[in-house]
Amino acid sequence: MTGTLNLVGYGLSAIGPAIATGMIFAAYISGVARQPEARSVLQPIAFLGFALAEALALFGLVLAFVL
């Protein structure tokens, strides 16, 4: 077996953002489903939360290849 342990570390660190993205959109969907007119308020918040969580995942990806 050959390979780099960085990728295993990246796999582990991707669990966090994955769960975070799931929770953000679960909350967004149930919020919109309960109160459809709240959509325009919720949408920017959901997108920003997604961007923050995704940024961490991408950060891990880049570091796994660079370090």
Binding site: P44, F47, L48, A51, F59
Partner: peptide, 18 residues
Amino acid sequence: LLLGIGAAIYLVWLRFGR
């Protein structure tokens, strides 16, 4: 990397957040 993340999140806020 941190600068790039910061700028990209700022851009996302400009486009989708306001």
